[in-house]
Amino acid sequence: MNHSKLQFFLLALLFLFISQNIAEPVFSFTAIPDQNDARLKERFDKVAVYLSKKLQIPVKYIPVKSYAASVAAFKNKEVQLAWFGGLSGVKARRAVKGAVAIAQGEEDMTFVSYFIANTKTKLKYSDEFPKEIEKKTFTFGSKGSTSGRLMPEFYIREHMKKAPQKIFKRVGFSGDHSKTIALVQSGGYQVGAVNYKVWEKEITQGLIDTNKVRIIWKTPPYPDYNWTIRGDTEKTFGQGFVKKVQQALLEMNDKQLLESFPRKRFIKADNSMYEPILKTGTAIGIFDE
């Protein structure tokens, strides 16, 4: 191809790109990346289609790489709605005045974390906090996770009276719950803390080898995931928009869609329900006090 032809070709490509990208403002949402990407995409692309139909406006799912990025996107108005964990939700609502939690899964008021251990450790399930995990290697999920970091660390500190770094031979942050399970199962870490929903979903999908990894403890219940929306969406999308989105989420009854979360159904939520998360986060130094 000679230069002028190539130049023409590139310019044509440019116009194609630009025309594709100029579009009406869309309602976008994001979610904390708590599982592997393929599963997140499958779940939230369906949610985008559902919301778009219900709200009669274009809705787009924006994938992010980290819990922190989901909070940042919410703060910077790149998304107006987000599926947060307990902790990321509190962070986002603390930073954005007028942001409200509007819905949660039915299970989310009584969420728990599982402590799981590689079977080679010979640790067994008990109702008491397993103090024998001292001197083992331990992995949390993401640094910003409620069920994979905040709550486990809180109970570890409460029962052992020391910081995790002082208790375990090694402390890691796997990044997400799927990875935590994989690491403890392979023996990369001896013990880990994981979101019970992700564990149970992977058990039913046959992804976990229970000869290699088992549950050894269950935390007391705490509030977790929530749909949080920016208050200023009413300015862009009209009065009563927050209520409309809330209604759409509560009316979600497609079995397959709910199953992908996995939640039985969504129920109403409000900011005050997550007070315990704020207190716990402050206690372990995630929030400044």
Partner: peptide, 9 residues
């Protein structure tokens, strides 16, 4: 740095 980013500080 990553931890501080994660805590939004």
């Amino acid at each position: 740095v990553d931890s501080a980013i994660s805590d939004d500080k």
